Structure formats: C-alpha cells, structure tokens
Simulated assay, not measured.
Amino acid sequence: MKKEKPEETVKEERLTYEDYAALPDVEGVRYELVDGVLELLTPSPTSKHQMISARMQFLLTQTCDEDYLILDAPMDVILSPYEVRQPDLIMVHRSRISIVSKRGIEGPPDLVVEILSPYSVKRDKVGKLKTYEKYGIPEFWIVEASGTYLEQYVLKDTKYELVEVFTGEEPVRSERLPCVSFTMNDILSRIPDLPD
C-alpha cells in the first residue's frame, strides 16, 4: 500500500468571515480577508496618513452628514464570506443603512477611500482596486501618501474608469456624491510639517 506524503493529504481551505472574526484581538494588529486568505496590514499607518484621513472625514462630514454615514478604519467591509476589507474611509447613503450591521458594512458602500502609504501602494492600487471593482463599489478614491492628489475611479458597467485627478485648489466633485465639496489644499492646509 502506497503511503501518501503529508502535503498530499493536507487540504488548504479558504477562511471565511467567521474564521476572520474569531481571530484573537491583538492591539495594533489588523488583517483583511482577501479571497479567503488572511493578509496582515503592517506597519500601522503613518502620522500623516492618519491626519489626512481625519481631515478628509471632517470635510466630508461637514457637507455630507445629512445624507451619508461617513466611517473610518478600522471598519470591516464584508463583500462576501471570503472577502473582508478595511478601507480608510467609507460612505454609505442613509437610504441604504440596512447594509450597516453590528459586524460592519455588509455589501458594497457608495464610496471607499484608500490613502496610500509607501508599503500599501501595490495593495491599494492593484489588489483593492480589483476587489472593489469586482464587488460593484460605485466609486473609489485613492489619495496619494503626501495628500497632494486624489484619483477618482467610477464604475462604468463592470470596470473602473479613472475619471479625474484632483490637485491643489481644484474642487473635488462627484456626480454620484453631490454633497462632496473640498480641495486637496483644504486637507493639506491643516496638516503640519513633520520631522523625519
């Protein structure tokens, strides 16, 4: 009788949201579930990243709070049993509040925002773009790590199209989110220069 090698008998199964949710809570350690595989999010975001995120959330809240829930990371966006992402910022129209549960956002939000960090460029601009596109998130913004520009991707049929790149004093606008009204300079004007 032929003996099987151990690697032939071990079956690797994709993890599910339930497996992900059962992970021990370790301070400073965050994961995303990418097609059933855990992906460690390290290192933690930089100070500038967090200031850009907070300032953008503040500006969005000033003009969009009446119509949208505006949430920030860490917040699970559960796109399938095998796909859980944590965008930096999330907007959900209040008419769709049913997708917000105690577990997180269960389904595609109206907008997700990723603020790049040196270690997240490929994950955000390739991996997350493909995921958000696949699960039908209508609009996706990528903010450059220093906050100097914002790329606006809009879902056209089933593919994202880069429709605008906003810089400086150009008003950031969205046909889908008419309440949006800020500039990249509005964000940068409140962020101090930080020592290296």
Results as ranks from 00 to 15, higher is better:
3 K>P: 06
6 P>N: 12
6 P>D: 10
7 E>G: 01
8 E>S: 11
8 E>F: 01
10 V>M: 04
11 K>Q: 09
11 K>T: 14
11 K>H: 08
12 E>V: 00
12 E>Q: 01
13 E>R: 10
13 E>W: 01
15 L>V: 01
16 T>Q: 02
19 D>I: 02
20 Y>T: 01
20 Y>S: 00
20 Y>W: 02
20 Y>V: 00
20 Y>C: 00
23 L>H: 02
24 P>W: 04
27 E>W: 03
28 G>L: 04
34 V>W: 00
34 V>M: 02
34 V>N: 00
34 V>C: 00
35 D>V: 00
35 D>R: 00
38 L>S: 00
38 L>T: 00
39 E>G: 00
42 T>M: 10
42 T>E: 11
44 S>L: 09
44 S>P: 14
47 S>K: 14
48 K>P: 06
50 Q>A: 11
51 M>I: 03
53 S>A: 14
53 S>I: 09
54 A>Y: 02
56 M>S: 12
57 Q>S: 14
59 L>A: 11
59 L>H: 09
60 L>A: 10
65 D>R: 13
66 E>L: 08
67 D>L: 01
68 Y>T: 09
69 L>P: 01
70 I>C: 10
73 A>S: 15
74 P>E: 09
75 M>F: 07
78 I>G: 02
78 I>D: 01
79 L>V: 12
79 L>M: 08
82 Y>L: 00
83 E>V: 02
86 Q>P: 07
87 P>W: 04
93 H>T: 11
94 R>N: 13
94 R>Q: 14
98 S>T: 06
99 I>Q: 09
100 V>Q: 14
100 V>F: 12
101 S>I: 07
103 R>K: 15
103 R>Y: 09
104 G>P: 03
104 G>E: 03
106 E>M: 06
109 P>R: 08
109 P>C: 10
109 P>E: 06
110 D>A: 09
114 E>K: 02
117 S>Q: 06
119 Y>K: 10
121 V>H: 08
122 K>A: 12
124 D>I: 03
125 K>E: 12
126 V>M: 08
126 V>Q: 14
127 G>I: 01
128 K>C: 09
128 K>R: 13
128 K>G: 13
129 L>K: 15
130 K>H: 13
133 E>F: 04
135 Y>F: 15
135 Y>A: 10
136 G>K: 02
136 G>C: 06
137 I>Q: 04
138 P>T: 15
138 P>Y: 09
140 F>K: 02
140 F>N: 03
141 W>A: 10
141 W>N: 12
143 V>H: 13
144 E>I: 06
145 A>N: 11
146 S>M: 10
147 G>D: 06
148 T>M: 03
154 V>E: 11
157 D>W: 05
157 D>T: 15
158 T>P: 06
159 K>W: 04
160 Y>P: 06
163 V>I: 14
165 V>W: 02
166 F>Q: 11
169 E>G: 08
171 P>Y: 09
172 V>A: 12
172 V>N: 12
174 S>F: 05
177 L>G: 12
180 V>S: 11
181 S>L: 05
182 F>G: 11
185 N>R: 13
189 S>L: 03
190 R>E: 08
191 I>R: 12
192 P>N: 08
192 P>I: 05
192 P>A: 05
193 D>N: 08
195 P>N: 08
196 D>S: 11
